[in-house]
Lab assay of single mutants.
Amino acid sequence: ATNIVGKVKWYNSTKNAGFIEQDNGGKDVFVHKSAVDAAGLHSLEEGQDVIFDLEEKQGKAYAVNLRIK
């Protein structure tokens, strides 16, 4: 899926990971530091509006192509 709108639920820069809550009510999506880095960002803030694509690896959904809304 592409161009999904959501809000950062939480992001821990020590653990280099967090979750994004989908505005469409879907399951929360894992976001890794690699996606944050690829977006040219240093970190994510709780409640921040984002747009992202979903990629599945080994049955788990990940946020990729992250951008700030």
Results as ranks from 00 to 15, higher is better:
K57G: 08
W10Q: 04
G25P: 06
V64S: 06
G6M: 01
L44K: 00
L41Q: 05
N3W: 05
H32R: 06
S13L: 10
V31F: 12
Q22R: 14
S13K: 14
F19W: 14
I68A: 07
Q22I: 13
V64Y: 04
D53F: 02
L66K: 00
W10N: 04
S13C: 15
A61N: 11
K27I: 09
V31T: 01
D37C: 14
S43L: 10
I68K: 05
K57Y: 13
T2Y: 13
E46T: 15
K57A: 10
D28R: 09
E45K: 14
L41T: 03
N24T: 09
K9H: 05
A38L: 09
H32W: 05
Q48M: 13
N16E: 11
F30L: 06
F52Q: 00
V50Y: 03
K69R: 12
G40M: 07
D53G: 02
E55W: 15
V31W: 02
V8W: 06
N12A: 07
T2G: 06
I68T: 09
D53C: 03
G40Y: 05
N65K: 06
K15T: 10
V5Y: 12
W10M: 05
G18R: 01
F52C: 00
E55K: 11
D23Y: 15
G25T: 07
F19Y: 12
V5E: 12
S13W: 10
Q58N: 15
T14V: 12
N24D: 09
E56C: 14
E56K: 11
E21H: 11
A1L: 13
I51A: 04
K15D: 07
E56M: 14
T2L: 13
A1Y: 12
Q48F: 06
G59A: 04
A38C: 09
A38D: 08
G18V: 03
A17M: 15
W10P: 00
V31I: 10
F19L: 11
L41A: 06
T2Q: 12
G59E: 06
D49I: 15
K27Q: 11
D23L: 15
W10H: 05
V5S: 14
H32D: 10
G40W: 05
D28F: 09
Q22L: 14
G40I: 03
A1W: 11
Q48L: 10
A1V: 12
K27N: 10
A63Q: 01
N65D: 02
I4Y: 06
H32M: 09
G59F: 05
G47Q: 04
A35D: 05
G47K: 05
D37Q: 14
A35K: 03
Y62R: 09
G59Y: 04
A63V: 07
D37Y: 14
E55Q: 11
N65F: 03
T14E: 12
I51T: 08
N16A: 13
I68M: 09
G40P: 02
K57T: 10
I51H: 03
H32V: 07
N12L: 08
Q58F: 13
Q22Y: 15
N65L: 02
A38K: 11
G59W: 03
T14H: 13
A39L: 07
R67I: 07
L44H: 01
V8S: 01
H42R: 12
V36I: 11
K7R: 13
H42T: 13
A63Y: 01
K60P: 03
A17Y: 15
E21V: 13
L44V: 03
F52V: 02
N16I: 04
D49V: 15
Q58T: 08
H32I: 06
T2C: 12
I4L: 15
F19R: 07
F52S: 00
G6N: 01
Y62C: 10
E46G: 12
S34M: 10
G26H: 09
K69L: 14
L66V: 09
I4N: 06
L41D: 02
D49R: 15
E21Q: 15
V5Q: 14
D28T: 08
N24A: 10
K7W: 08
W10E: 04
G25D: 07
A39P: 01
K9F: 03
W10F: 09
I51W: 08
E46F: 11
W10C: 10
Q48P: 00
K33N: 05
A17V: 14
S13D: 09
V29G: 01
A17T: 10
G18Q: 01
V8P: 00
I20V: 05
V31R: 00
D23H: 14
V50F: 03
E45A: 12
E55S: 09
K33C: 08
L66Y: 00
V50N: 00
A63W: 01
G47M: 04
S13N: 11
Y11C: 04
R67L: 05
A1F: 12
N24Y: 08
D28Q: 09
T2E: 08
T2A: 10
A17D: 04
G40Q: 07
A63K: 01
K60C: 12
E21G: 11
I51S: 04
G26E: 09
G26F: 08
V64Q: 04
V36S: 02
I51Q: 05
I20E: 01
F52W: 01
K60Q: 09
K15E: 08
A61C: 13
A35R: 03
A1M: 13
K7A: 04
F30V: 05
A38F: 07
V5P: 13
T2R: 14
E56I: 15
A61I: 15
D53E: 04
A61G: 09
V8A: 01
V50T: 02
Q48E: 08
K27C: 10
D23W: 12
K69W: 10
N3T: 06
E45L: 12
T2P: 05
A39E: 02
L66F: 00
D28W: 13
L44Y: 01
V29K: 01
G59C: 07
G6I: 02
E21C: 14
N16D: 07
I4D: 01
F19I: 12
R67C: 04
L44A: 01
A61Q: 14
E46R: 15
L54T: 05
K33W: 10
N65M: 02
